[in-house]
């Protein structure tokens, strides 16, 4: 019995199992999404001989969606079991939807408190997904997953905000789906108020040109997202003047979590000063392009 290196895909499955163990032990509702938690029809291609998976989905982390009102408690539990925060919800992405954590043995996980593109109130949306949950075994451990239809929605919404659009995911989740499956997916999208995200995934974002959210989706999938444009879109899509003000203020600051990950150590005052200088230089450089975009 040894303690040799464990392959990444194995560590990811152990991460899923560990998260489920902790959730069960503390009465927390979690749904495992993406990666190995996906149904085979959404994660594998058959080879020419038929039947044998030849393109099993590789995943570098474990993703879970947590019942929103239990997120704070779950984050505390994770911190007591060796999970260290790498990025907070606020600094994780433009959508502020997930926190990234790291564990010595299991690698990385993303804890989602909502899923970008779902417009329904997060708690209600979780109830909708939870109602049709099922179970898959990851590392021989029963883990709770959303229905296959909900998995299609999650994949499509993720593709809609990803550079390159995840064409493999869109193909499996939508283009190769039967008319019935597409209809079920569309119904769930409507119920979750996720129409714009689906439009982004399928390349129909122009149908929502007047929506304040459309710019955010368009920018999220751009290979070279403009710093100022990203924040501008985020502010435009904010739900209240108070949130808009908070975002505008935050846009000026360096993301310490990202800088720590980039440097491999907590930034020094000199690192922070250099990052601020780069941020303002970038903002000034992008300003003329932004003005052009607004015409």
């Amino acid at each position: 019995m040894t303690e040799r290196d464990v392959p990444l895909s194995v560590r990811v499955e152990f991460a899923h199992a560990a998260l489920q163990w902790l959730a069960d032990a503390h009465g927390i509702d979690v749904l495992h999404i993406k990666g190995p938690a996906l149904a085979p029809v959404l994660s594998e291609d058959l080879d020419d001989e038929g039947g044998v998976p030849s393109n099993r989905r590789a995943s570098t982390d474990a993703d879970v969606l947590v019942r929103p009102r239990q997120v704070e408690a779950f984050m505390k539990i994770l911190s007591e079991h060796g999970w260290t925060a790498m990025a907070s919800f606020e600094s994780g992405s433009v959508f502020e939807h997930a926190a990234a954590l790291e564990h010595t043995w299991f690698g990385h996980c993303d804890v989602h408190r909502n899923f970008p593109g779902i417009g329904l109130d997060p708690e209600t949306a979780f109830d909708v997904l939870w109602a049709d949950r099922s179970t898959v075994e990851l590392a021989a451990w029963p883990c709770t997953v959303p229905s296959i239809t909900a998995q299609r929605v999650v994949l499509l919404l993720h593709a809609g905000r990803t550079v390159g659009g995840q064409p493999q995911d869109v193909r499996r989740a939508w283009r190769e789906a039967s008319p019935t499956d597409q209809e079920q997916t569309q119904l769930l999208v409507t119920r979750l108020k996720a129409e714009i995200g689906l439009a982004a995934a399928l390349g129909h974002l122009d149908d929502y040109a007047d929506s304040p959210e459309a710019d955010l989706w368009r920018l999220a999938s751009q290979p070279e997202t403009l710093r100022l444009a990203e924040w501008q879109a985020r502010i435009k899509a904010s739900k209240s003047p108070r949130e808009a003000l908070r975002l505008a203020f935050k846009a000026l600051f360096v993301n310490v979590d990202h800088l720590t990950m980039k440097l491999g150590h907590p930034p020094t005052r000199r690192d922070m000063a250099a990052a601020y200088a780069r941020r303002f230089a970038t903002a000034l450089r992008e300003l003329p392009r932004l003005v052009g975009r607004r015409r």
């Binding site: 303690e3 194995v10 152990f14 199992a17 560990a18 060796g82 043995w105 021989a140």
Partner: peptide, 25 residues
């Protein structure tokens, strides 16, 4: 929790882990 080596792995191995935070063996 436990699992066998992934298909692309050239050597047959078993990975065994005591949850929630044990080091995999």
């Amino acid at each position: 929790a436990w699992q066998e080596s992934p298909p692309e792995h050239h050597r047959r191995e078993l990975y065994i882990c005591r949850l929630p935070d044990g080091r995999p063996i």
